[in-house]
């Protein structure tokens, strides 16, 4: 078994129009910028994207939105230092937004990957974001029922990967990545370094390879923050 691919283009080539794509990251940390840019080059449209945010500047997720590829965004916080791309698309009615509280978003993705179709959470009870959702009382407190969230593809940024797809992450770049890796039919990973089997201490594996479909090495991955400081625009 060898999940390594040599190019990002090959890795994203099977993402069809209309796919639901989870994209890891919290703001720029852990965002798989090169995979997103490969998806832009690939050309799939009409996507539903799941991410915590809505992009920043004109690179990564913001560029995917700017290119008109995203029909719907499921996220918790569609604001950033430079949210112009999403804001304009949203106010022009060109993109749908499903706003989800951050912890609920994480748990819905985790549930999707874990085969749990729904769960109850106190988050959002009595607020606009729980409108229309079933409510049940447990031990005297009210909870909102939330559904799992699954995707056709997940785009993930990891630190180390091996050919089985075992992954580690770097610092706070972990965030949504391990959850999304579990919740997609096909999980595509860009890793800063691909090592030989045995090159990751089994005690240090965060995402076991069973959740991963393909890994591609991107040695000098860009940081969204640095691209934005340089006022980069993709493509």
């Amino acid at each position: 078994m060898d999940k390594r691919l040599s190019t990002l283009a090959e890795a994203v080539s099977r993402i069809p129009d209309g796919a639901t794509v989870m994209i890891g990251g919290f703001g720029g940390s852990g965002a798989p910028v090169e995979l997103i840019h490969a998806l832009i080059d690939h050309g799939a449209r009409g996507l539903t994207v799941v991410n915590n945010n809505a992009g920043n500047g004109h690179v990564g997720l913001a560029a995917l939105i700017e290119q008109g590829r995203v029909d719907k965004l499921i996220c918790s916080f569609p604001r950033s230092a430079d949210p112009q791309v999403f804001t304009e698309a949203y106010l022009a009615g060109k993109i749908q937004l499903e706003l989800v509280p951050q912890g609920t978003l994480a748990e819905r993705i985790r549930a999707g990957g874990a085969g749990i179709p729904a769960f109850y959470t106190p988050t959002g009870f009595g607020t606009d974001l729980a409108e229309g959702k079933p409510v049940e009382e447990f031990d005297g407190r009210s909870y909102v029922r939330e559904r799992w969230l699954k995707a056709d593809f997940a785009l993930i940024k990891a630190e180390l990967a091996d050919s089985h797809g075992n992954l580690t992450y770097r610092m706070a770049a972990r965030n949504f990545n391990p959850l999304m890796a579990m919740a997609a039919e096909t999980t595509i990973v860009q890793a800063t370094r691909i090592v030989e089997l045995g090159g990751i201490d089994p005690e240090q594996v965060v995402t076991p390879g069973i959740f991963v479909s393909h890994v591609v090495e991107v040695a000098d991955a860009a940081q969204e923050e640095m691209l934005n400081r340089a006022e980069a625009v993709y493509p």
């Binding site: 918790s76 569609p78 604001r79 999403f86 949203y90 937004l97 609920t104 988050t123």
Partner: peptide, 15 residues
């Protein structure tokens, strides 16, 4: 109007 954004606020008030 504008763009609604909630982040973790609704989670943080519980627990």
């Amino acid at each position: 109007g504008g763009v609604p954004a909630v982040g973790g606020a609704m989670d943080l008030v519980h627990g």
